[in-house]
Design a protein around this nucleic acid. Structure first.
Length: 802
DNA sequence: CATATCTGCTTACC
DNA sequence: ACTGGTAAGCAGATACG
C-alpha cells in the first residue's frame, strides 16, 4: 500500500538482533499511524591505516561489526580516506568504537555519538511534521494505531501538518508550600484543545460548568487523564514547565496510586529522564514544554523580564491568568464546596493560555524543525548553540564533511580559559544633540564570516599568500582562498536565503514566512558565539578572534571615513555609527554610505538605520567621561528609544524609572528643562511625605544562586533571607522583591519584604538619594542644571542648609 | 577612623 | 541552565594614610 503521512515522533526497538525504526505520525486523511523501517543500520567512521578484515572481526558481547566500507570524506575540510564501519545494533557503536580506537594504525574515530534515530532522519532526509511518502504493508503489532512496515520511505513535499494539540495543567494540594509529590496529591487536572475543555477533580460541588468532570479519587483522576489523552489523539501535548513540574508530578502520583498511565501509542507510560533537568516524553506524541522554547529562544525578543505564564501570556497574547489566591487552594479544598469552582476555572484558563501560546509560537518552532530536521520534541529543548551545531551536522552530509567529535572533558576545560577580544565601543561626548543619523552594518558578524571565508579548516593555509590578513592578540590570521569554507559557506547560504524570503515577505505578509525570517536571523546570529563556545564540535578560537578583529577593522573604517567626510561622529557600538548631520543633509549621509559600501567585500553592507531629530548622551557616574551603552533618541514620530538607562533596568524601583523616563521625555521631546526640574522636585517631596505607594518603591533583583553561595550580603540577599524565614523557597533564578525602610545601619539591615511594610515605613530619603537623584543627575548635568536646584527649595533641605 | 579603591554582583547593549 | 565580549553602577569589603 501507498500512504502519505507527517511524522511526529521517532523511536526504535531492537528485535531479533536488528534495529527497527518506528515513526509515529498522522496520515493525510487524519489517522494516526506507526511506520516501521528495519532497513537502516548504525555506523561510524574510522581514520587510519588498518586492514578491513581486522575491523570486520571486531565484536563484544552481542555487538559486532557487520561490514566495513571504504569511503572518501572531508575531515576538517581536507579529503581523506576513511572506513565506514557498520554495526549490528545502535548500542554497539560506542562499545565497538572504544575497541577500535585502541587498535594499531587507527588514528581517529568519528560520528560515534550521533543518536540512531537522529541519524536515521538526517541520512534519509526525512523532516518531522513534513509530508512523507511510504510504500509498505500493514502488519499486526502491539500498538494503539495501525502499523505499516515500510519498503520505502522518503520525503514527499514541504507541506506541513496542522497538528492536533492539547494543553495540560495541574493544581496540587499544597498546605506546606513545598510542592512535594510524595506527600501531596494532585487535586485538579485540566486539558484544553481544539473545541475541547475538560477539568477533572475529585471533590464534588454544585456547578453548571459543563467542562468540569467529577471522579471519586486522585487515582481515578489520573486514570481519566490517560483515557482523555487516548480519546483526543493529540499529536502534541503542550504545557508550561511540564518537563520540570506537571509530568514528573503526575508520574510520581501515578506510582503512589498504582495507576498505569499507558498513554504512549505503544502502550508505554510517560518517561521522565534526568534529575536536575528533567524531560518528559511519551512515545508517539510530541511533548512540547513551551516554557523551554520561550526561555531559550524567544526570551530575548520579549520586553518582559519575567517568564511566568502570566507575564508571557500578557505580552504575547494580551491575556492574563484568572486572579485567585492559589496559595490557599489547600484550605478551600479542605473545606470543600462551591469555592473550589474558581480554581477549576483558573486551571482551565491556564490550559487555554498555554494552548494559545503554543499556537502562536508553533510557526517559529516548526521553522526550526524544518531547518534542523529533528523532531519537535528535540528542537523544543534546544538552545542557540545546539541549533547551530545540528544545522552544521545536517549540512555536513551535503558537504561530505565528517561531523567533528565533541571535545573531551579536559579539552573543554582548557577551552574555557580561551578569551577573545570583543567589539569596539566609541566613547560619546555627553550632550544633547540634534539631527542624528544612525547607520549599522547588517548582520555584521555573519557577513564577516561569510565574506572573509572564515572556517575552521582554512585557518592560515600554506598555499595562500594573497589572502587578506588580520592582526589579533593571538597573531595574524588568514583563510584559504582556494576553496569555499564549510562554515562560511553555510552561513553565506543562510544570509542569502533569508534575504530572499524577506523580500517575499515584503510583497505579502505571511506568518509562516515571518517565522522563517526570524528563525534564520536567530540562527545566523548564533554562529559567531558558537565558534567560541567550549563544548562546540566546530570550536575555532582563531575564527572567533578573526571575526571580531575584522569587525573592529570595519567599524573603525566607517568612523574614520565619516569624520573625514565632515560628519561629527557621536557614538558607535560594535556595528553601528551615530553621526550628527550638522550643516549636512540626509542625502549627504546616504551618499557617504554608498561610497563605503562600494569598498566592502562580499555580503557586507552598511545600512541606514534611522534619523533622529534629537538624542542625549550622558557622563558616567564615576568620571567626566561619556557613558557607553547608555543613550536616548527621539525619532520623528516623537517616540523615544531608551538604551542602558536605569529606566530600562529591572533592578530599579518603578518610581525611579518613571521619573527618569519622564525627564527624558520633557528634555528630548518638549525641550522643557523647567518642567523637568519641577517634576523631579514634586516627586522628591512626595517621597519625603511617603505619598508614593509602596508598589512603586519595590526593588526587584534576581538571585543568581542560593543564599549560602553569596560571599557578601547585599540588600537582595538580605531580602532572600527574610523570604526563607517566611518558609518560601528561594534559589538561583528567584526574583526577590524588597523595600528599604527607615532605620539605622547598612541598607541590608533596613530591607523588608513588600508585604511587611506600610506606606509610611519606607525610607523616602533613601529613595531620593539612591534611586531618584542618581537616575536624573547625569541628565541634568548635560543641561547645566546643578543637583542642588532639584533638592534645594524643597522645604526640608532648605531649612537644613541655612 | 574616614576615604579611596577593589570586589562581587546584576543587568544592560550589541 | 550550556553562544560571545563590553560596559555601567550599586553595596559591601578592604586597603590606606
Amino acid at each position: 500500500m501507498n500512504l502519505s503521512f507527517y511524522p511526529v515522533d521517532i523511536t526504535y526497538e531492537v528485535k531479533d538482533g536488528k534495529p527497527i525504526i518506528k515513526l509515529f505520525g498522522r496520515t493525510t486523511d487524519g489517522k494516526q499511524v506507526c511506520v516501521l523501517d528495519d532497513s537502516f543500520e548504525p555506523y561510524f567512521y574510522v581514520q587510519g591505516t588498518v586492514s578491513e578484515k581486522k575491523l570486520e572481526s571486531v565484536q563484544k558481547d552481542e555487538f559486532k561489526v557487520v561490514r566495513v566500507e571504504k569511503c572518501k570524506k572531508n575531515v576538517n575540510e581536507k579529503e581523506e580516506d576513511l572506513f565506514k564501519v557498520i554495526v549490528n545494533i545502535p548500542k554497539g557503536v560506542p562499545v565497538l568504537k572504544e575497541i577500535i580506537v585502541d587498535m594499531t594504525g587507527v588514528k581517529k574515530v568519528y560520528e560515534y555519538d550521533i543518536l540512531f534515530t537522529r541519524r536515521y532522519l538526517l541520512d534519509k532526509k526525512i523532516v518531522p511534521l513534513t509530508k512523507t511518502k511510504v510504500v509498505g504493508e500493514k502488519i499486526a503489532a502491539n500498538c494503539k494505531v495501525d502499523c505499516i512496515k515500510a519498503k520505502s520511505i522518503k520525503k514527499e513535499s514541504d507541506e506541513i501538518i496542522e497538528p492536533r494539540i492539547v494543553a495540560l495543567d495541574i493544581e496540587t494540594y499544597n498546605p506546606d508550600n513545598s510542592l512535594n509529590a510524595k506527600k501531596n496529591p494532585i487535586i485538579i487536572l485540566g486539558l484544553y484543545g481544539d473545541n475541547f475543555s475538560r477539568v477533572v477533580t475529585w471533590k464534588k460541588f454544585k456547578t453548571s460548568n459543563k467542562y468540569i468532570e467529577f471522579v471519586s479519587s486522585e487515582a481515578d483522576m489520573l486514570q481519566r487523564f490517560a483515557e482523555l489523552i487516548t480519546e483526543y489523539q493529540p499529536d502534541i501535548i503542550t504545557g508550561y514547565f511540564t518537563d520540570g513540574f506537571d509530568f514528573p508530578y503526575i508520574v510520581e502520583r501515578a506510582k503512589i496510586n498504582k495507576v498505569e498511565l499507558d498513554v504512549g501509542l505503544d502502550y508505554s507510560t510517560i518517561d521522565i529522564r534526568g534529575r536536575t533537568r528533567k524531560e518528559a516524553s511519551i512515545t508517539g506524541i510530541a511533548h512540547v514544554d513551551i516554557f523551554k522554547f520561550i526561555i531559550r529562544v524567544i526570551a530575548r525578543s520579549l520586553k518582559t523580564d519575567q517568564y511566568s505564564l502570566n507575564a508571557v501570556a500578557n505580552e504575547l497574547l494580551g491575556a492574563t491568568k484568572h486572579d485567585v489566591d492559589i496559595e490557599h487552594l489547600f484550605d478551600v479544598w479542605d473545606k470543600g464546596g462551591k469555592n473550589i469552582e474558581q480554581y477549576c476555572e483558573y486551571n482551565l484558563q491556564d490550559c487555554k493560555l498555554t494552548y494559545d501560546l503554543t499556537i502562536k509560537l508553533l510557526p517559529n518552532l516548526i521553522e526550526f524543525v524544518r531547518i534542523i530536521g529533528l523532531p519537535i520534541f528535540d528542537v523544543n529543548r534546544m538552545s542557540f548553540s545546539t541549533f547551530v551545531e545540528w544545522y552544521l551536522i545536517k549540512k555536513a552530509q551535503e558537504f561530505n564533511e565528517i561531523i567533528l567529535s565533541k571535545p573531551g572533558h579536559n579539552e573543554e576545560r582548557e577551552r574555557m580559559h580561551d578569551r577573545i577580544q570583543g567589539a569596539f565601543v566609541y566613547e560619546p561626548k555627553p550632550g544633547l544633540y540634534e539631527k542624528i543619523v544612525v547607520f549599522d552594518y547588517r548582520s555584521l558578524y555573519p557577513s564577516i564570516i561569510a565574506s572573509l571565508n572564515i572556517s575552521k579548516g582554512l585557518v592560515n593555509c600554506k598555499c595562500c599568500k594573497k589572502a587578506s590578513r588580520i592582526n589579533t592578540d593571538r597573531g595574524e590570521f588568514w583563510f584559504c582562498t582556494k576553496q569555499k569554507g564549510f562554515f562560511s559557506e553555510i552561513i553565506s547560504e543562510l544570509i542569502t536565503h533569508r534575504a530572499k524570503i524577506k523580500k517575499e515577505l515584503k510583497q505579502k505578509q505571511n506568518p509562516l514566512l515571518a517565522a522563517q525570517v526570524e528563525a534564520l536571523k536567530v540562527l545566523a546570529n548564533s554562529f559567531y558565539g558558537y565558534l567560541g563556545f567550549a563544548p562546540a564540535r566546530w570550536y575555532c578560537i582563531e575564527c572567533a578572534e578573526s571575526t571580531t578583529a575584522w569587525a573592529r577593522h570595519y567599524i573603525h573604517k566607517a568612523i574614520d571615513s565619516a569624520k573625514k567626510e565632515g560628519f561629527d561622529v557621536l557614538y558607535s557600538d560594535t556595528d553601528s555609527v551615530f553621526v550628527q548631520l550638522g550643516k549636512k543633509s540626509k542625502k549627504d549621509a546616504l551618499d557617504w554610505v554608498k561610497k563605503i559600501n562600494d569598498d566592502l567585500p562580499g555580503l557586507m553592507e552598511l545600512e541606514f538605520e534611522g534619523f533622529y531629530p534629537a538624542g542625549l548622551f550622558v557622563a558616567t557616574k564615576a568620571s567626566e567621561s561619556g557613558a557607553k551603552k547608555k543613550y536616548a533618541l527621539l525619532d520623528e514620530k516623537k517616540h523615544i528609544t531608551i538604551k542602558g538607562f536605569e529606566a530600562v533596568r529591572r533592578n530599579w524601583s518603578i518610581i525611579a524609572k518613571e521619573v527618569q523616563q519622564e525627564v527624558l521625555r520633557l528634555v528630548l521631546n518638549e525641550k522643557n528643562t523647567e518642567n523637568a526640574k519641577k517634576f523631579v522636585r514634586e516627586t522628591i517631596e512626595d517621597l519625603r511625605a511617603n505619598k508614593i505607594p509602596v508598589e512603586k518603591v519595590v526593588i526587584r533583583t534576581e538571585l543568581s544562586k542560593t543564599v549560602e553561595g553569596y560571599s557578601t550580603v547585599s540588600p537582595h540577599v538580605a531580602a532572600a533571607k527574610r523570604m526563607e524565614k517566611d518558609g518560601k523557597k528561594v534559589s538561583g533564578g528567584t526574583i526577590v522583591s524588597y523595600v528599604v525602610t527607615k532605620g539605622k545601619g547598612k541598607i541590608r539591615d533596613k530591607v523588608k519584604l513588600p508585604h511587611e511594610v506600610k506606606q509610611k515605613d519606607y525610607d523616602g530619603e533613601y529613595y531620593i538619594d539612591h534611586q531618584i537623584l542618581p537616575g536624573v543627575e547625569r541628565i541634568f548635568d548635560v543641561l547645566d542644571v546643578h543637583i542642588d536646584e532639584l533638592t534645594k527649595n524643597t522645604k526640608q533641605k532648605t531649612l537644613e542648609h541655612f
